[in-house]
């Protein structure tokens, strides 16, 4: 696949003391993180903890107030279009045009990303999303789950090195959830760095390599140990709850 803006690749993602303030409110406070190719990391935390802000910063949509984000040897905002070509973002909003059909949405983004063999790529993406039979229907008539599946394929259409998935399981039924888990395993095997935010901890159990918990903008690594992901997550929140 040709990379618009030149061939830029990286195998690590490193955040060093990333802080982001909105006015007087500090959404992220000295967040550090290191991820390697093929790692899947969960970003957990209560609502408003700063998960989406962190994903926006990593996606180069927001500049950190202080601190640094490095993609291998490259600095985020300076690397520009060539770096953005290696990022895939699934937001809480789905980033798809409801007036267009799935095929039209995918064709537009495939061309924007300079994907080669666009039609084959669209056919594969629609197959993954289970939407081949609805390829020419307007997305406005789709259920939330169908839109979510399409949005995920849109985010992964150009085989990104770094996939940022904000609540990817929202609205998915059991079959689609199972398919997404398999898709995430495929991404891991292909060397993609995956960052997932979710509250659906049982679903990601076993498919994430490690988890970070964000609380009031501060990130701590969820300790590896006995118990399920949910139990460990609850245990990590207990000190905050008891101090209230």
């Amino acid at each position: 696949m040709s990379t618009p803006g030149g061939d830029l690749d990286f195998t690590t993602l490193t955040l060093t003391d990333v802080t982001r303030s909105f006015g007087r409110r500090r959404a992220l406070n000295r967040v550090s993180l290191h991820a390697r190719a093929g790692e899947t990391i969960a970003l957990l935390g209560p609502n408003g903890a700063g998960k989406s802000t962190l994903l926006s910063i990593i996606a180069t949509l927001l500049a950190p107030t202080s601190g640094e984000v490095r993609y291998g040897p490259h600095e985020g905002l300076r690397a520009g279009a060539a770096l953005r070509a290696r990022l895939g973002l699934l937001g809480h909003d789905l980033y798809i045009y409801p007036e267009l059909s799935p095929a039209e949405n995918l064709r537009f983004f495939a061309k924007v990303y300079g994907v080669e063999d666009v039609e084959r790529c669209i056919a594969d993406a629609l197959d993954h999303a289970g939407l081949s039979h609805r390829r020419d229907d307007p997305v406005s008539g789709f259920s939330r789950g169908m839109r979510q599946r399409l949005a995920l394929e849109r985010a992964l259409l150009h085989a990104p090195r770094l996939a940022l998935l904000d609540e990817p399981f929202t609205g998915l039924d059991d079959a689609a959830t199972h398919a997404l888990r398999q898709r995430l395993a495929t991404l891991r095997n292909s060397g993609c760095i995956v960052l997932i935010t979710t509250h659906d901890l049982e679903t990601i159990e076993g498919i994430v390599d490690r988890a970070m918990v964000l609380r009031n903008g501060v990130a701590v690594e969820l300790p590896v140990g006995a118990g399920s992901l949910r139990q460990r997550y609850r245990a990590s929140l207990t000190p905050l709850s008891s101090s209230r």
């Binding site: 996606a59 180069t60 279009a81 953005r84 990022l87 973002l89 980033y95 798809i96 924007v112």
Partner: peptide, 8 residues
């Protein structure tokens, strides 16, 4: 946002 993150 999708257009802003795109490599264009």
């Amino acid at each position: 946002r999708a257009l802003m993150i795109a490599p264009i």
